[in-house]
Design a protein around this nucleic acid. Sequence first.
DNA 1: CAAGGTATATTCACTGGTCAGTATACATTG
DNA 2: CAATGTATACTGACCAGTGAATATACCTTG
Lengths: 206, 206
Amino acid sequence: MARSSDPTRTRILAAASRLFYAEGIRTVSVDAVAEKAGITKKTLYYHFRSKDDLVAAYLAARDQPNLELFKRWFDDSEGALPDKIAAIFRQLARAARHPKWRGCGFLRTTAELANLPGHPAIRIGAAHKKKFEAWLQTTFEAAGIAASGELARQMLLLLDGAFAVVLLHRDASYMETAGEAARALTTAALARRAKSAAPRRPPAAR
Amino acid sequence: MARSSDPTRTRILAAASRLFYAEGIRTVSVDAVAEKAGITKKTLYYHFRSKDDLVAAYLAARDQPNLELFKRWFDDSEGALPDKIAAIFRQLARAARHPKWRGCGFLRTTAELANLPGHPAIRIGAAHKKKFEAWLQTTFEAAGIAASGELARQMLLLLDGAFAVVLLHRDASYMETAGEAARALTTAALARRAKSAAPRRPPAAR
DNA sequence: CAAGGTATATTCACTGGTCAGTATACATTG
DNA sequence: CAATGTATACTGACCAGTGAATATACCTTG
């Protein structure tokens, strides 16, 4: 069985990742992936059972790196919580101006495979977004925000809305508008905390 | 030349609409559309120059009805402006619980054709969203909101984010979360108006 | 009004090409 | 030599678009 560190497997995955993200799932043939990886199709089928498998692996490989990138953007930014949230959107706006940017691979794959609800790739995409939402909620909880769950969901909605709209209009400024909305909602949530519970340590996580 | 009221053309478009929305663009073959419409493929090609043409016509046919539906939901709801905005999301949540619901056809088509930036279908989708945004802005302006443009964009972001997230998780409750965020942002914008300019008639449109 | 013509609308059968996946065989290496 | 990995060449299905012919409806003109 091929280990995940297998160099051939890694090469295939790198080729698949670039092609699927750039062109979409259904337009990219297995032959095209094999050629880009510099191997034959049969070798690809030695490492992956089917195209669906390969698609799932493509998204699975993006899961952790993506989450870590967002956390890094958050951690490395200056200012109070609303500013650090807005920083994520600002960085994303920067990325979206790159000509090769094509939105969120998870969302685009979901949209393309919407007729196959149980598809493994969709499950992986859903899990990815859930992880991101959970991280946001934990962050808001630590800041003493009562409705941390609702706020986390709202951030997620703004983020994914921005992915979709920026892709549609090819106008990255929507990403910054989303960031401003995220900042405003976070500020308002913090203000509610300050009112209902005097400035204190974050409540013990439970 | 076939007029747009042509019954055959209408039948083709109806079949295309149901199939493209349910299954996606690239998975649906022209043969499948022709069969669903009860005609031969050659007849379809008599009425539409190409598959791309048909895809564009599919979205163009959804443009006006979709906008009118949203406006109707807004007009027919009770309460103040934030409640009427939230009503759109509530109605959409109801629609999203239907098993045949597959998100926003415009966004899904854009995601699927993201590798063809100038595609006519994407242009139509972009124009559709711009019209919706313009209607929102006009509505906010009429209510005396100063930052009507920014607020309209924020509503659009929440709406399209909800389309994407609800499709991913198959969980319509995100639509209601988006509605609450939309309500909160609208309420805040109205409060800013009340502060900066005493309750007065909406400023003359310019 | 009838004969012939022209534009519209539709069908059947086909083409050239692509796609996911496989059968079989060859190579490398522990 | 046996397990692992890679290559060539193929299969059966499907797909966008087309060629040639036919049917229908309306229109012109003798």
